[in-house]
Every structure is written in structure tokens, then in C-alpha cells.
Design a protein around this nucleic acid. Sequence first.
DNA 1: ACCAAGAATTTGAACGATCAAAGTTTTTTG
DNA 2: CAAAAAACTTTGATCGTTCAAATTCTTGGT
Lengths: 349, 349
Amino acid sequence: MGQLPTVEDVAELANVSRQTVSNVLNTPAIVKPATRERVEDAISRLGYRQNASARRLRTQKSSTIGIRLDPMVNGISGSVLDRFLHALTEQADGRGMRVLLFTAPTPEAEIEQIRRLRDGSDVDAFVLTATFYGDPRTEWLIANQVPFVTFGRPWGIDDMNDPQHLWVDVDGAAGVREATAHLLDTGATRIHYLGWPSPSGTGDDRRRGWAGAMGDRLGIDGERLAALEHTTVEDVATATTVAAALLEREPDVDALVCVSDSLALGAMIAATSAGRPDLPIVGFDNTPIAQAVGFSSVEQSLAEVASGVLELLMGATGSDLVGRALAPGEAHRLITPQLIVRQPHHLPI
Amino acid sequence: MGQLPTVEDVAELANVSRQTVSNVLNTPAIVKPATRERVEDAISRLGYRQNASARRLRTQKSSTIGIRLDPMVNGISGSVLDRFLHALTEQADGRGMRVLLFTAPTPEAEIEQIRRLRDGSDVDAFVLTATFYGDPRTEWLIANQVPFVTFGRPWGIDDMNDPQHLWVDVDGAAGVREATAHLLDTGATRIHYLGWPSPSGTGDDRRRGWAGAMGDRLGIDGERLAALEHTTVEDVATATTVAAALLEREPDVDALVCVSDSLALGAMIAATSAGRPDLPIVGFDNTPIAQAVGFSSVEQSLAEVASGVLELLMGATGSDLVGRALAPGEAHRLITPQLIVRQPHHLPI
DNA sequence: ACCAAGAATTTGAACGATCAAAGTTTTTTG
DNA sequence: CAAAAAACTTTGATCGTTCAAATTCTTGGT
């Protein structure tokens, strides 16, 4: 096998011109059926594939999405980005897009990388994760008119409805509300909450779900609600300590809603140890740990997040990047997560 | 800001020709220092960047490494691939390479994807993970002369020293041997092993490390060694049960070496519950769980694996892909992992 | 049967870089 | 100091594709 076949080779075999071959590939509708068939036959006979670099050079599009691989993912929820990446890659492929990775130690370095990738025509859109308040990246991207979508809502209120800032996020409040409602349905009433210290965009959002359900269904709020709330950092050992103290101080706890699987694992260990292996505990992210140890958890559909990202970037069916700014209501997607109910495995502790 | 500057623009500003600009970029050594400086000045003044597509079209190289993102990573060790990906991306960037992701449900589909990416000049080398016995992918890649490296040694004996099959792997035996030796140094002698059922390439390799240390240092082998060995599947709950039974049956256990952090977590829970929170336990992979719960673990340096992969692919310093077959001894790298010693957190169970 | 309008196809140029070879300047050498 | 060698720079061609404009082929109305 010498050279790879080119459009020219296909054209010659099919007795047509380069351009017709190109048309069969890109705009088949304008080619006469008989001709198209002949070309397609030649293509498959030669095993021809488009040369991506040449195509990109000519069209000035790379059909590639860039995403930064975070330096370190926190705790046991690390697999979230992993799973998102998988879903994104898979769905991007379905739309003829590819996913290119890059790394950067700081937001400034990330901007530099983005600039490089963009200027080199390597990437024509970006997906940002882990956005934060006053994020310089989103500002830069908007200012430089680089298409992008963030996974995670912007934290500046102004940006929330800015039609230039496309974003997809998981409705943590809805997920935790469902979890709380499910516990209420089973008869629990003293449902405590184990969360992260405020302020935390994600954490506060999830807490709102619990608070809302407790308020709506039981009329509990204000002081009485605050008494059911406990906070700890994202760390299994610390969470275990906090949960153990809680269970000792308040033996009548009915159930425990946790902001993450890490905290839920700590709570699980503490509960089992306190002789309450059946205490209903709910975590968030449905990590392998939740499955392994056996507690309920709120699962975010990363496939939905990925498809939301691509829809915002390329339109519902499109295969091209949208340059247009979207209407305020269309510029984002809020994905509703789902509660996965599990029975504890009764670990023999 | 209208058009992006090209070599032509830089050349004009620096009063040289296209080619000289290209030389400054690619082979600076052959350009007279004064000229080079003038060109570099023009480059930075215009903010010029090489157009990757044009370069790739001309050179017929994509400077891109393809890697398949596995459908699902198993258990809590999922972050391994994640961390490897990060290290690979980072180091590839340092060598002017990029990492492109793809997915595929089956090995056959993966070959098809590889073929597509290769034929389209999208990717010019691949990194394979999770290889298995009689893997069709490696055979296809070798037959089609596509450069690749596998993370994980080939399991067919013949391939082990095939200079065409480049591979990097972690020396699990050495890691577990070190862990066992460390426990022996602290005075432990009844060191049990909790592993996966045989046959398992990775599992058997790690087991060998434990067996070797026990044999060399204590002269224990054969029947006596087998009595200290226990197996269970990769699942926290099951491991907890097995470890609990073991501790009850053999109260004089000094320490427990585990094939993975999942099993170590199970062992940790069982030990703590059995009133032996200080029982030395060692896991493998040094996942966030090991850190969170507080047990020793063998850490594989994924940075070293990544750099090994790139070295095999591109040569020690090179920035080009090696087409040459390497000598039998040079075709692989075995990375020695390192034991991370931790004191238990004394979870208040 | 003719001509205009539309459909289908072809041709030349361009995308932005590097290669190969040829041209120019500078340095070395007899 | 001239000629040869080395060092450096420039010129034309090319990678494989798509765009824009030009050309040829169909179709349909009168």
C-alpha cells in the first residue's frame, strides 16, 4: 500500500471531477443520484477517507472541541468529570466532532492555552468546567468571540441570563428535593442535612432542595430547620466524626441527606458503628462508592449534560457551530438528576 | 482584528522570506542570530501562531496522539485512567503533541475508529489501555504499521519481548514486595494477602510480590504461604465480609496486604469493627479513598508512565515519532511504584 | 424546435505552511 | 587575493481539500 487515495483518485475512477466527489461528501443533495452512486462506489472501492488536515485548512474549521482536564479532581467524586468526558466524546463523535484535551495549572495559563489552540485553528469551541465567580476565562472567551459552553452555571447573577454565556448545569436542588421527598414518603420526618460550609454555589443549591422539601411538606423552616443542619468539609474522616457526634447527640434522627457521596460514606460508617445500619442515608453523584457500600444517591445524567452542551454549541440537529447569540431563555439547560434508591448492604461491622 | 497573521505577514515585517520564518520556527539553529531575532520580534509583535492544519497538511503529521476513553472504569480505582490522561496530556504538550479522545464499544469498533483517525491524518500514534490476551488491536496496529504504545504489558508471552510492541507497565510485584518488606521491617510476620481470584494478569503479578517477600525474608512458601492467602472479587462489601471472616478465624493476623484499595477499604472496615483499628493494611493505587480513610497504599507514578509512553513513542528527547523498531530490551518500560505509608485515622466506629 | 432558466458539473485559485533545490552572502584556504 | 567551501536565504512547487465562478447539460414553456 503506497499513498492514501485522494479525491483526485476517486474522481478519476468515477469519471467525474474533484469537486463532484467533494459534493458527494459534503452536499450530496446537489449531485445527480446516478453520479452520486458511481462516486460512492469508487470511494468504497478505494477505501478513500477525507484528509482532515486539508479539509480544516480550507474550511478554517477544526471540528474539534477543546476541554481542559482538571489538575486534580476532588475526592471520590473524581469520576464525574471522567464520565462527562466519555459522554461528551461519544456524542461529539456522532456529530462529527472530536474532543481534544489540554491542561493548565491556572486560569491565566488556561486562557493562554485556549488562545493557542484557537489561533492555531486546532479547536473551534471550548467546554469549560469548574467555573467560579468572576471567572476570567468566560470573560475572555466572550470578549474574543470564541464559542464555548460551561458545565456549571455562572455564579455572577448578571451572567445567569446573559445569552452570550451558554451553560448547562445539573439542578442539584431538584435532585436533593426528590431525595428528601422520597424519605418523607417513607415516613421519615426528622431528616437531617449534612452539607458543606457556606458559601458554596453547588453546596448551597443542593441544600435549598432539602430546605424546600422540609418547608413545603412539614412546614419546618428558620430556627427549627437550622437545628437539623450540619456542615463539614469534603473529607470522609471528618464527616465520620461529625456524623458520629450528631447521632450520639440526637438519637432520634430519621434519615440523613448528604451533599456528596464522601460525606454520605462517613455518615454510613458512623451510623453502622452506632448500631443503626439501616438509617436511610442519601448521597450525591452516585459514585462507585455509593454502589459498593450501598446507599442511595442522586445521579446526574452526564449523557444529558453532554448532549445539552452540544445542542447549545451546534443547535439541536446542526453539525455546525452556532455563532449566533441565543435568546435569553435558550442559552442554558438545567438537567434534572435522578435519585437512585438502594438498600444498605448491612456491612458486618 | 481581521485576519490572523500568516508566515507571509511575519516575513514581510521582518524583511525576510517565508522560509526563513519557517526556519526560525522549526530549525532555529540554521538561522543567523541577528535575523532570527528580527523574525522573533516580528512574530511577537504580530502575535503570530502557526496554523496547525496547514502544517499538518504539509508535513503529513498530526502531532496528535489518540487514546480511547474506556466505557466504564471499575470501582474506586477509576481515577487511575483519569490521572494517567492528565499526565499524558501535560507531558505531550511539552513535546508539542496533543491528545485526542475517542470512544468505542468493542475492540473491533475501536480498530475501525483507529483506522478512521489514522487515514484522516487526524492522529499519528495511539496509546492503548486495558490490553488483553490475543488482543486484536495490537495485532492490527502492528500489521498496519501504526505507531502505538500500550499501558499494560502484553499478556501473550511471545509479545513480551517483541520489539514491535512497545509497552509501559507498572511493576506491581515490586510495589507489593516493598509494602510487604516494610511490614516485615516493623516486626510483622503473619502478613496475610487479600487478592483477586486467579488468573488475573495484574492480580497474579501483585501477589508474586507478596509471595516473594514472604519467601525471601521468612522462608515461607508452598502450603504455609497458601494458608495466608485469601481471594475475593473487586467489591467493597464482599471484601468486608471476607476480611471479617478472616479476622475472626485467625485472630493473630499481623497485617494485611491487599491487591487494591477497594479490598483494603473492606478490610479496613472489618478490622475497625473487629476492634483492631490499628491493624496495618496496605492497598494499591493510592486512590482518594486510601487518603480519606487512612491506610497505606502503593502508588503508581502515572507521570512516569506517561513519560515512558512518550519516550518510547518519540525517543528520549525527540519531538518526532519513531518509526524504527526498537531493540528487544528498549521496547518497554517497567515503572516501579512506591509505597505511601499512612497511619489509620482511627475512625470513631 | 428554440431559448431561457435551472440543475449539474467542471475549472482555476486558495487555505498556510514546509520541502527541495537554487541563489546569495560570508568565511576559509592555498 | 582568487577560488572553494560553508553558511545563510530565497524561490517555486506541493500537501488535499473546498470555494467561487465558469461551463455544460437538462428541462419546460411557447
